[in-house]
C-alpha cells in the first residue's frame, strides 16, 4: 500500500481507500490518517471508495472504525465513490451509515467542507466581531469595561 493514499487538500484530508486491504493495511492506513490530521490540523477526512469493489463485514467495520477515530481527533468523515453494487450489499447486510455524510465527488466534498466550516466556525467568528464592534450592547459593554 503506497503512502500516496492520503493527501491534504485545503482543510480536508483525501484518503483513497485501496482495494483488497488486509487487517494490517487497515491499521497502517489508520495510523497514517491520524498522523496527517495532526500534522495538517485537518477538519475533514474524505474517504474515497472509488477503487473498492467488494463489501463485507470487514469493510463495514473499517468505515465505522475510521469514522470513530476521526471523530476523536475532532474532525469529521465524509465518504464518496461507493459503487452501486457495494452500496446495495452494504444495505442488504444491514450496514447503514446514518451519521456519515456522503458526496458525489471531490468538488462536492470540498464544497461541503467549506460551507459547514463557514456556518460553524466562520459564522461564530463574525458573530463575535458583531458583538464587539457593531451592536449597541457591545459598545455598552465595551464602555463599561473601560470604566
Amino acid at each position: 500500500m503506497e503512502t500516496t493514499a492520503v493527501q491534504k487538500l485545503e482543510n480536508l484530508l483525501l484518503v483513497s481507500v485501496p482495494q483488497d486491504m488486509t487487517d494490517e493495511d487497515v491499521i497502517l492506513l489508520r495510523r497514517q490518517v491520524l498522523q496527517k490530521i495532526r500534522q495538517h490540523g485537518s477538519r475533514w477526512v474524505l474517504l474515497d471508495f472509488a477503487l473498492v469493489d467488494i463489501c463485507d463485514s470487514f469493510f463495514g467495520r473499517f468505515i465505522y472504525s475510521m469514522a470513530e477515530m476521526v471523530k476523536l481527533m475532532g474532525a469529521k468523515v465524509i465518504i464518496s465513490g461507493l459503487q452501486d453494487a457495494v452500496v446495495e450489499t452494504l444495505i442488504d447486510l444491514g450496514l447503514t451509515l446514518p451519521h456519515i455524510p456522503a458526496v458525489l465527488d471531490l468538488d462536492d466534498a470540498l464544497a461541503l467542507a467549506r460551507s459547514t466550516d463557514a456556518t460553524s466556525f466562520g459564522a461564530m467568528a463574525s458573530i463575535r466581531e458583531n458583538v464587539v464592534w457593531d451592536t449597541p450592547e457591545a459598545k455598552l459593554l465595551a464602555n463599561r469595561s473601560e470604566v
Binding site: 467488494i54 463489501c55 463485507d56 453494487a85 457495494v86 450489499t89
Partner: peptide, 17 residues
C-alpha cells in the same frame, strides 16, 4: 451480474475470515 459477483465475494470473505 456485478451485484451478484459482489455477493459471491462477500460470502467467500465472510466464511474465510
Amino acid at each position: 451480474s456485478n451485484n451478484d459477483q459482489v455477493l459471491v465475494v462477500l460470502a467467500i470473505s465472510e466464511i474465510a475470515h
